[in-house]
Simulated assay, not measured.
Amino acid sequence: MTASIKKYRQLRTDVIKHLYYSKMLTLTELSVLTHKSLPLITNVVNNLVADGYILEYGLAPSTGGRRALTFLLNKEKQRFIIAVAMDQLVTQVAMYDLLNEQRVESEILQFTLNDDPGLTASLIDFLKDYILRSGVPLEQILGLGIGMPGFVNAAKGINHTFFKVAGEGSLREHLTKELGLPVFIDNDSSLIAQAELKFGEGKKLNDVMVVNIGWGIGLGMIINGSLFRGHSGYAGEFSHIPLSLSNKLCSCGKQGCLEVDTSLLVLVERAKSEIKRGVSSSLQQRFADESKLHGDHFLEAAKAGDPLAVSILSDAAFLIGKGLSTLIHIINPELIVLGGRGAIAGEIMIAPVQQAIHEFCIPRLAEHTEIKVSALNMDSGLLGAATLVIENCNFN
């Protein structure tokens, strides 16, 4: 394959990526985004229209001159993406089309991550069953993206914490072989940040920190408009900065980690302890409902204004804000997004986080950092996993 053909094929893929993230674009907008000439972009778009990937949608709003034609991806092209969002207790899978609309209903598996060597086989069985029941042929699936906790080397496709493969092989390669599809993996917090960058509060911003509040406390960092991974690819281990004054042992084996006072598992146990001591709370009735995880019950109770849940969550949010104050001094972000499962609680987390930032952060820095709760809510993990496929596949 000549270099010119390779570049042309890459440009086709880049055009599709920009349309995937922006929904509708004109030829001029695509030319600006790809840094390619308008005649070349026109040629590429015409070929993609002929191949059925792109549709002419209509005229863009008038800006004073001749209205430009807009283009969008064709969801009838029958190309699909499987997205998998994992945390320590729950695995969710969904199938999207090229317009990011779910084409097969999502499913949830209660799936606790641990050192069990059979964990990988269980995940494969779950995904195989989902794909089979979807009725979608493998040749119509572009790939499968998975966001998962742990020390994940996305480039090598290895999770050093969970899903060990015999002989220290690549988890990505093993899953690709077993599922018969291109598979891509990445850290869950990194993908949640990617979702915010492409679809959420961080869209078109350059310096953003996205806190993944869940069974642990993860962090994704957007610096200069791109996901920051650090030298070895493991940047963002926010859970393990030493902020706790307790002697409780963290899952990492160290003491003093932020996680031991702020993870949802800890907050739920604290609520149960207070209820046992006689504190009145709607959580007592909510926890009796086993159809949902207790962490979700806790967050919903806090959002509804339950005094006990609000108090416990506020304490945790203040400590998270204290940790963020340190990062603000180092990174000076434009925006901090509170996301992940914790986004269920909504705006209730913002006040204690801001209180801590005002208390511990230099005012000149604090006043230039905005705090928002993710509008993507629980979809951020799936959307991030979908982008993993878009970023790694081609459309030729």
Rank of each mutant, 00 (worst) to 15 (best):
A3T: 03
L11K: 06
K17H: 11
Y20R: 03
Y21I: 15
S22E: 15
S22R: 09
M24G: 08
T26D: 12
T28S: 10
E29W: 07
L30P: 03
L33P: 07
T34A: 02
K36T: 15
K36P: 12
P39F: 05
V44Y: 03
V49Q: 15
D51W: 05
Y53T: 14
Y53R: 02
E56R: 15
P61C: 07
P61M: 10
G64I: 03
G65W: 10
A68S: 09
L69K: 15
T70V: 11
L72R: 15
K75F: 12
A83C: 04
D87E: 14
Q92N: 13
D97H: 01
L98T: 10
L98P: 15
L98H: 06
L99G: 05
E101D: 15
V104R: 00
E105Y: 10
I108E: 12
Q110R: 09
T112V: 14
P117F: 11
T120G: 03
T120C: 05
A121T: 12
A121Q: 13
I124N: 08
I124P: 10
D125K: 09
D129M: 03
I131C: 07
L138C: 00
G143L: 04
G143P: 02
I146T: 07
A155K: 13
T161G: 11
F162Y: 11
K164V: 06
K164L: 12
S170H: 06
S170P: 01
G180C: 04
L181G: 10
L181A: 13
P182G: 01
V183I: 09
V183T: 08
F184N: 03
A195H: 04
L197H: 11
K203M: 04
L205M: 08
V211P: 00
W215P: 03
I223H: 14
N224E: 06
F228H: 14
F228Y: 15
E237Q: 04
I241P: 07
L245F: 12
C252W: 09
C252S: 05
G253V: 05
K254P: 02
E259Y: 07
E259T: 05
L267E: 10
I275E: 07
R277V: 00
V279T: 09
Q284I: 10
Q285H: 02
D289L: 10
S291W: 09
S291N: 13
K292D: 01
H294L: 09
A304R: 03
A317H: 04
H329A: 14
P333T: 14
E334N: 09
E334L: 09
V337I: 12
I348F: 04
A351G: 00
A351I: 00
P352M: 04
Q355A: 14
I357L: 00
I357W: 00
F360N: 10
P363A: 13
H368D: 09
K372H: 03
K372I: 04
N377A: 15
M378A: 11
N394T: 07
